[in-house]
């Protein structure tokens, strides 16, 4: 399925989950995601990630609602615990495959969703810089430590230096892109045209309708 279509369906369902107070619905979302993961053949590390990551925020909400809730708070505690899992398991369908599908996702954004190429290619450029950004932050902190300063998060110096790097790099990248022929606002041709299959639309619509039908009985 086209990653942008998948993304759209996931975002709509996630938005609805925010307002639905139902453990059952959350569990159904988790179960359907789990079935899809079985088809996708995840590595055991990814399974572990899916199971462990939501534990902390989930239990955090659960304990708070148990201790300090009012009204139907015991129910709400379970809703929150299952909701955190539902968000991550649902989102994982998109994010875990994103490494393979990133190029086609961005190409779809540009060609089919008609997002300005400036944004799409800026995103491509900056995403490739992510490891360098991580390194740069370490460098900034180590450089300060060598002068006997520890840059904590509440110190403006840390952000100032990060912004200086951002300014320098954004300028270099902009120059690099322009010198490689990127022209703002120009009509682009595409080596590989992205098409969205009719089947993708059908699957997306069925998934969304099925989810709405699930909500109809008002069992939550």
């Amino acid at each position: 399925m086209n990653p942008l279509m998948k993304f759209g369906v996931i975002m709509i369902i996630a938005l609805e989950l925010t307002f639905i107070k139902s453990v059952t619905i959350n569990l159904i979302v988790i179960a359907v995601s789990a079935v899809l993961y079985l088809i996708l053949h995840l590595r055991w590390r990814q399974w572990l990630w899916l199971c462990l990551l939501p534990v902390l925020p989930g239990l955090g909400s659960w304990f708070s609602l148990m201790y300090f809730g009012t009204g139907d708070h015991v129910h709400m505690a379970w809703v929150m615990l299952s909701r955190v899992y539902a968000y991550l398991w649902l989102g994982g369908l998109f994010t875990l495959k994103l490494n393979d599908e990133r190029d086609i996702f961005l190409a779809t954004l540009e060609q089919r969703a008609h997002l300005s190429p400036t944004f799409v290619y800026a995103l491509v450029g900056v995403l490739n810089f992510m490891p360098a950004v991580n390194q740069q932050i370490k460098t900034i902190r180590v450089a300060a430590q060598m002068r006997g300063m520890t840059l904590h998060i509440w110190e403006p110096q840390l952000y100032f230096k990060a912004i200086l790097s951002a300014i320098r790099w954004s300028q270099s990248l902009a120059e690099g892109m322009v010198s490689h022929g990127f022209t703002e606002g120009a009509q682009r041709t595409h080596l590989e045209a992205v098409t969205i299959k009719r089947l993708d639309w059908v699957i997306a619509i069925i998934a969304l309708i099925a989810f709405q039908l699930l909500l109809l009985p008002h069992w939550y």
Binding site: F119, A122, I137, A162, W169, Q171, A174
Partner: peptide
């Protein structure tokens, strides 16, 4: 860095890149 005048409605490449880099830096710091 030269930032475009705010009165322009068009998003310039260098502005988009600057804002993306700032976002990534903040994202990483946290």
């Amino acid at each position: 860095q030269t930032v475009s005048d705010s009165k322009r409605r068009h998003w310039a490449l260098r502005d988009v890149l600057l804002l993306a880099f700032v976002a990534v830096f903040i994202g990483f710091i946290f």
